[in-house]
Simulated assay, not measured.
Amino acid sequence: MTARRYIVVALVAFAAALAAVLIARFWFAPPPRVESEVHALLHQRLTLDAVQEQRIHALEVAFAERRERLETEMRADNQRLAAAIEAEHGYGPKVGEAVDRTHHVMGQLQKETLQHIFAMRAVLRPDQAAQFDAAIVRALTQPAR
């Protein structure tokens, strides 16, 4: 094989690998989380004044603490669920209780996330709130990939 063929083969292999990565990212990457899209909207697309920035920052700090607390609870619940599965080897009462507890904490996180979203919305002007609402609806209704 000549050097030219090796170069062509290397380029084709590189192009195929690159295409595979791009296809995998498109098809298998999870959609962005709603809060990621909201954060991008607030800090990149809406023109917030200094007071709005300060108020939203305070809301984000407080919510991050609450979210971390609930996520810690969910990790503990997952450990309890694993222990219940290991003990019962099936869907027994301990597994059912662990699942119910996990669902309760997940529901609490969802409620607190919505309260946080509405608290941030309350900081916005009407024109900003309309864009915010549209972004929330888009984020919640986009089809799963």
Rank of each mutant, 00 (worst) to 15 (best):
1 M>L: 11
5 R>F: 15
6 Y>Q: 14
8 V>M: 15
8 V>K: 14
10 A>L: 14
11 L>C: 09
12 V>C: 01
12 V>E: 03
12 V>M: 07
14 F>T: 11
18 L>I: 12
20 A>G: 11
20 A>R: 08
21 V>E: 04
23 I>L: 06
24 A>I: 13
24 A>R: 08
24 A>Q: 02
25 R>S: 11
29 A>G: 09
31 P>D: 06
31 P>F: 06
32 P>V: 03
34 V>C: 03
36 S>T: 15
38 V>H: 02
41 L>Q: 00
42 L>D: 00
44 Q>D: 08
47 T>W: 08
53 E>P: 04
54 Q>T: 13
60 E>T: 05
60 E>Y: 05
61 V>Y: 01
62 A>D: 08
63 F>C: 01
64 A>Y: 03
68 E>R: 05
70 L>A: 02
72 T>K: 10
73 E>D: 11
74 M>A: 07
77 D>G: 05
77 D>L: 03
77 D>M: 00
78 N>H: 09
80 R>I: 09
81 L>T: 00
86 E>Q: 11
87 A>D: 09
93 P>T: 10
95 V>P: 02
97 E>V: 04
99 V>Y: 04
99 V>E: 04
100 D>Y: 05
101 R>C: 05
101 R>H: 15
101 R>Q: 12
101 R>K: 12
102 T>D: 11
102 T>C: 05
103 H>M: 10
103 H>G: 15
106 M>R: 10
107 G>D: 14
114 L>R: 10
115 Q>M: 15
116 H>D: 01
117 I>M: 01
117 I>Y: 02
119 A>L: 05
120 M>L: 09
120 M>G: 00
121 R>H: 13
121 R>Y: 07
126 P>F: 01
129 A>D: 06
129 A>K: 04
130 A>H: 10
131 Q>T: 06
133 D>Q: 08
133 D>F: 04
136 I>E: 01
138 R>Y: 12
138 R>H: 13
138 R>I: 09
139 A>M: 03
140 L>I: 07
141 T>S: 05
142 Q>Y: 06
143 P>E: 08
144 A>M: 08
144 A>E: 11
145 R>V: 06
145 R>W: 02
145 R>K: 05
